[in-house]
């Protein structure tokens, strides 16, 4: 069952006279429960693809169907709603709010969908438990290790029960051992919670964890293979 589908998606940047095609007619389908790694050299268009998939950016051509809905024509606020309810983001640099406790960071997405404070607290606790950070709710990001910070970020991505998690080099700032732990967490969320995971990486070891590997080069999808351990 397809959860997202791109139909001949293009993204063209104009820099004065120059025309730069970051994405050129890319089409693929990702099914519910997929675990996809996107690889490619820098400038291959993988980050642009992630931004479009994450509804942070709009394509200049083609269609992007998310959960059956064409999101390529939505306005800013409608995109924000989609991000809030259907997508969870995990970034390389964690992107947690500083001077804000772990649990408040996890609560952040719920601040924008009208949940009551009590409900937010309960759901955030659940999410933190799921990522193995129970007992650290009131730690500030700077009191947590890199791996723990990334767990908080994953908790934040999970908390609204988003069916899709987009991770942009989630292990880029972590050592090998912590990277493995984080990847195991993704695998667990994928298999146990049936969450669709799309991650960008340039490390083949990390891509090993996924079920499917897409390679981008010069704005084209050049290969799309089943891979990894499963």
């Amino acid at each position: 069952m397809p959860i997202l589908e791109t139909i001949e998606i293009s993204k063209t940047y104009y820099m004065g006279e120059m025309e730069l095609k970051a994405l050129d007619s890319v089409s693929f389908i990702i099914n519910k429960g997929d675990f996809v790694s996107i690889m490619g050299a820098s400038g291959s268009g993988k980050s642009t693809m992630m931004n479009i998939l994450g509804c942070l950016d709009l394509p200049t051509g083609g269609k992007y169907l998310l959960d059956g809905e064409d999101v390529s024509k939505l306005n800013r606020d409608q995109l924000a709603e989609i991000r809030n309810s259907k997508l969870g983001f995990v970034f390389q640099g964690f992107n947690l709010l500083s001077r804000t406790t772990a649990i408040e960071n996890v609560e952040l997405p719920m601040l924008y969908n009208g949940l009551h404070a009590k409900e937010r607290r309960v759901k955030a606790m659940e999410a933190l438990k799921m990522v193995g950070l129970a007992g650290r709710e009131h730690h500030m990001p700077n009191q947590l290790s890199g791996g723990q910070q990334q767990r908080v970020a994953i908790g934040r991505a999970l908390v609204n029960n988003a069916p899709i998690i987009l991770a942009d080099e989630p292990t880029g700032n972590l050592d090998t051992k912590t990277s493995d732990e984080i990847m195991s967490l993704f695998v667990k969320l994928n298999t146990e919670e049936n969450i669709t995971i799309i991650l960008v990486t340039h490390e083949p070891d990390i891509a090993q964890y996924s079920k499917r590997l897409m390679r981008f080069s010069d704005g084209h999808l050049i290969s799309d293979t089943l891979s990894g351990q499963q």
């Binding site: 924000a80 991000r83 992107n95 997405p109 924008y112 934040r156």
Partner: peptide, 16 residues
Amino acid sequence: TREIGIRLAVGAKASD
């Protein structure tokens, strides 16, 4: 700016 970016990414609207 970064904080605003995070908030926007997790679903804050412009009005928020």
